[in-house]
């Protein structure tokens, strides 16, 4: 996995709440058996006009000022609904590596970390000031520093955020989760042996 350390990039503004994973990547585009290539259909139904090709000029991410943005600033409860990991795959494939909001849905939140995307949780007031700064100066670049747990802006905002220590470490190192877990092989085997005795009906008879 790609390590995530510190990024300075254009921050795109998406002033909507409850953005669900059906919007992030509509189901018509989930039939692929690969992890890649979903970016082109990110926010498909909002992003394209009825012909499914022409960019919708009214859709915020189509604004020229937001081109190349790696940071997405959005309203509360981002990523609710379906558990599809195609959503973070599409977000990462499009080029975002950071999402800033006041809250995220549980499954989406943990899916982000598996794909080197940092979800940053801020307060209502902090979100409002970040959004105001983008609105006043579209194309402005923010800096997100995971090591220091800080978002800073040219407008002078400096916002500290919380992140789980283990998840932070995994992101900084680009660690493989499965490899980490398999270091505990001994404990897993011991658990299984004990469960076989305790709840034998859950196991195939040897």
């Amino acid at each position: 996995m790609q390590p995530y350390i510190k990024h300075t990039s254009i921050a795109a503004l998406m002033d909507r709440s409850n953005v669900d994973t059906d919007q992030i990547i509509p189901k018509n585009f989930m039939k692929k058996v690969e992890r890649t290539g979903f970016g082109i259909n990110l926010f498909h139904n909002w992003r394209y006009l009825a012909d499914n090709i022409t960019p919708n000029p009214e859709f915020e991410l189509n604004k020229p000022a937001f081109k190349g943005a790696k940071i997405l600033v959005a309203g509360e409860n981002f990523g609710c609904g379906s558990s599809r990991e195609h959503a973070p795959w599409a977000i990462a494939d499009y080029g975002f590596n950071t999402i800033i909001s006041t809250s995220f849905a549980d499954i989406f939140f943990s899916n982000c970390f598996k794909n080197s995307i940092l979800p940053v949780v801020v307060t209502d007031e902090q979100l409002a000031s970040l959004m105001a700064e983008i609105s006043a100066n579209e194309g402005v670049e923010f800096t997100v520093d995971l090591e220091a747990q800080k978002v800073t802006t040219p407008g002078g905002l400096s916002i500290s955020f919380e992140v789980d220590a283990f998840r932070k470490e995994s992101l900084l190192d680009g660690l493989d989760d499965i490899a980490w877990t398999l270091k505990h092989e001994e404990q897993i085997s011991a658990y299984e042996a004990a469960q076989r005795k305790r709840l034998p009906w859950l196991w195939p008879s040897a």
Partner: peptide, 13 residues
């Protein structure tokens, strides 16, 4: 998510 599906298949945890 799918990464976790893989994780469960490999580690049962």
């Amino acid at each position: 998510g799918t990464s976790e599906v893989e994780h469960v298949m490999a580690t049962q945890t």
